Structures are given as structure tokens and as C-alpha cells.
Simulated scan of single mutants.
Amino acid sequence: MSKMQTPHSGYHWDGGNRRFFEGWYYRVTLPDCGQTFAFMYSIEDPIGGKPDSGGAAQILGADDEYICRTFPDVNKFWASPDVLALGHWGETNLNTKPIYLLPAEFATHVQQGYQATATLNQGIIKDPATGNYCQWQYEIQPLYGWGNRDSMQQSTAGWLSFLQIFEPGWQILMAHGLASGWIDWNGKIYQFQNAPAYSEKNWGGAFPQKWFWVNCNSFDGEPDLALTAGGGRRGVLWWMESVAMIGLHYQGKFYEFVPWNAKVEWKIQPWGKWEMKATNSDYEVKLTGTTHLPGTPLRAPTAQGLQFCCRDTMQGKLDIELRQIRGENRLVILKAHSHLCGLEIGGGSWDDCWQSS
């Protein structure tokens, strides 16, 4: 087990028949051509035989274009309870129980499907309606999990996430890493070496009513910087609460702004502008994400199964400033900019601006 491994890296399903989903997100950004590829894998009601039982692979690819493939057979899904490792076979000439395959074996035997670990992301999906396809294989070198380098990694939602109090659970698996390999997007092949990579996951039996997300680890002139921020309205036991957090990895250090150690404020437009600010006893951070692009609708697990209920762009602009608080003074530690930021809103009631009180 790697010391970079975060809590919640393993698969959470306990074999029960209650409503359950688990989703994984892998992203690689290619600064040279300004493109990003995000791979979203999910499994719902893995016990099988329920209206929403099944899996899917979605990709938000070049120029925010989208492809999705469903895998209805839950028995062809596998995942490790102990480490980050999962896969789903669609079309294959193998009759064996699905397991991790060596990359060359996977490429030979699986015509539709994927497999992913902490150090590999591989797969192939085709859309029979359009003929569009994506095939990919890249290796990942993790640099940051979720926490300071060389120390115990933390759970994103704090110690409470170990109890079934919060749903859904959310864990950043790798805030920053380097990916090397290739992606074939409808015949255009993107080859890359040490490209910024990221991964996260969520799981549970309940679904957030509404959420927002800002994610970037490809900044101008700052190779050792990664930001993930987000917030949502989610169920806690029998009430709903609105929470948000900002996490920043920079030059070996983790700056965490969460409800139990900081004041986190946000102002999110229905689309186009994401503003957040957080202050704890030692630091304050401000970020603004913007886009003029329309964004792409994506599917997400809901109480009614996988539905189009969020909107993303991977080509947002981001400005971020981190300051150290010294008495009355504010010392600027970092000012950074990116034009390759992931921006998302999801869930219902985005008729007007969502502002924290």
C-alpha cells in the first residue's frame, strides 16, 4: 500500500441491497494543446436486478466534446475494497470473472470497457449511434494525495466521513500527479509525457441537491500547484446542510480550508462565474473562475439513476491568491492564473446566484 494512498481509496459497497452508487473521476490536462480529458466511471445498485443497476463510462474530451457508454451487466464490474482498482468489461472474448489484466492483455481481449488503478487508466468505448470512439492508456505517477507530502493522507470530508453520517461521501484520491501515455479521440492521437493528472471519487446512497466544483492543476509558471474546491447541499442524517471547502497543494505543503477550521464563503452564478473566499487563523485564499463557453451537460448518479444534471467546462479561466495572515498584515504567498480550469455546477434550482450567508 502506497503512503500516498488516501482513506476511502477502496470500493465501499457492502453487498447490501440499499440504493448505492460509487463514481470515480480521472483527469489529464495537456497544456501544450490546451485540451483536457476527463474519464468518469460509475456503478449503481451493484446487487443487480434493480431499475438503475448498471455501470457507465463517460468522457469529456477535446473541446468539451462528450461520449458515454453504459455497461448494464453488474457482474462484469470489479473493484478492490482495499486499494484504488476497478474495471468494467463490456464487449470481450473472455468468459472468466472480470479482474485486473496486464495492459497488453486488456487491449487484446476487451473490445469495450475500462480498468483503472492509482497508477494506470486504460480503456476503450464506442458510441454505436455516431461511430465516435475513444481509446486510452496512460500511466500515472502520483505526487500529492490529499494532505502534506510525506505525511498521513487525509479524508476530504474529515473524520465524519468514516461514519455513515454524510451522503454522498467525497474523496480526492490524487490532487496532483503526472500522466504519460496516449489517448485516441476519434482518430486523433494525443501523446503526452508528464501531463498534469488528477483523480477523485464519491459514493453513497443519497445524492446532493445541488453542488459546484472548481479544479485545476495546470497553472501558468507554477508546476507544483493544485487546487480543488467545491460545495454542495447534502443530507446529514435527517437535515440538509450547505458546506464548502478549498484545498490547495503548493510546494510540498497542504493548505486546507474546511468548515471546521475556516470560514468558507462562496458566490456562484447559475453559469459563468465561480467566486470563493476562505480564511483560517493563518491564511486566506481567494479564487475566481470564469468561462464564456456554454459548457457540456454530463450525467451524474441521482435517485432516479444516471441523469443529465450537471454542466462542465474544462477550459475555464482561474485566478487564485493565497496570503499569510500576520497580525494586521497580509503577506502574498502565491498569485496564479490558469486557462485550463475545470468548472462545474450540478443539481437543481440554478435560477439565480447561490451565495453563502
Rank of each mutant, 00 (worst) to 15 (best):
Met1Leu: 11
His8Phe: 15
Asp14Phe: 04
Arg19Ala: 12
Arg19Gly: 03
Gly23Thr: 13
Gly23Met: 09
Gly23Val: 14
Trp24Met: 02
Tyr26Ala: 08
Gly34Tyr: 10
Gln35Lys: 13
Gln35Asp: 14
Ala38Leu: 10
Pro46Ser: 05
Gly48Glu: 04
Asp52Met: 06
Asp52Val: 14
Ser53Arg: 02
Gly54Phe: 07
Ile59Ser: 00
Ile59Arg: 02
Leu60Ser: 01
Gly61His: 01
Ile67Gln: 00
Thr70Tyr: 04
Phe71Asn: 00
Pro72Ala: 13
Lys76Ile: 05
Phe77His: 09
Ser80Lys: 01
Pro81His: 12
Pro81Ser: 14
Pro81Lys: 09
Gly87Ser: 09
His88Met: 11
Gly90Trp: 03
Glu91Thr: 11
Glu91Asn: 11
Asn93Gly: 05
Pro98Lys: 06
Phe106Leu: 07
His109Arg: 01
Gln111Ile: 10
Gln112Tyr: 14
Gly113Phe: 09
Gln115Leu: 12
Ala116Gln: 14
Ile125Phe: 09
Pro128Ala: 11
Gly131Thr: 01
Tyr133Gly: 05
Tyr133Trp: 10
Ile140Thr: 14
Gln141Trp: 08
Pro142Gln: 11
Asn148His: 15
Arg149Asp: 12
Gly158Met: 10
Leu160Gln: 13
Leu160Tyr: 11
Ser161Met: 12
Ser161Trp: 06
Trp170Cys: 06
Gly177Ile: 02
Gly181Arg: 02
Trp185Met: 13
Asn186Ile: 08
Lys188Met: 12
Ile189Pro: 01
Phe192Ser: 03
Phe192Thr: 01
Phe192Asp: 00
Asn194Met: 06
Pro196Ser: 08
Pro196Ala: 09
Glu200Tyr: 07
Asn202Met: 07
Gly204Ser: 03
Phe207Leu: 09
Pro208Ile: 07
Gln209Asn: 06
Phe212Asn: 01
Asn215Arg: 12
Cys216Val: 10
Asp224Gly: 03
Asp224Lys: 06
Leu227Ser: 07
Thr228Lys: 06
Gly232Lys: 03
Val236Asp: 03
Glu241Ala: 12
Met245Ser: 12
Gly247Gln: 05
His249Leu: 13
Tyr255Ile: 07
Tyr255Trp: 01
Pro259Trp: 08
Asn261Gln: 08
Lys263Cys: 08
Glu265Pro: 01
Trp266Arg: 00
Glu275Trp: 05
Thr279Phe: 07
Ser281His: 11
Ser281Pro: 03
Asp282His: 11
Val285Ile: 15
Leu287Arg: 04
Gly289Asn: 04
Thr290Gln: 02
Pro294Cys: 10
Gly295Asp: 06
Gly295Ile: 05
Pro297Met: 14
Gln304Val: 15
Gly305Ala: 09
Met314Ser: 14
Met314Gly: 12
Leu318Phe: 08
Asp319Arg: 07
Glu321Ile: 13
Arg323Ile: 05
Gln324Val: 08
Ile325Asn: 00
Ile325Ala: 04
Arg326Leu: 15
Arg330Gln: 15
Leu331Ile: 15
Ile333Gly: 02
Leu334Ile: 09
Lys335His: 12
Cys341His: 00
Cys341Ala: 15
Gly342Met: 14
Gly346Thr: 02
Gly348Ser: 11
Gly348Phe: 05
Gly348Arg: 03
Asp352Cys: 13
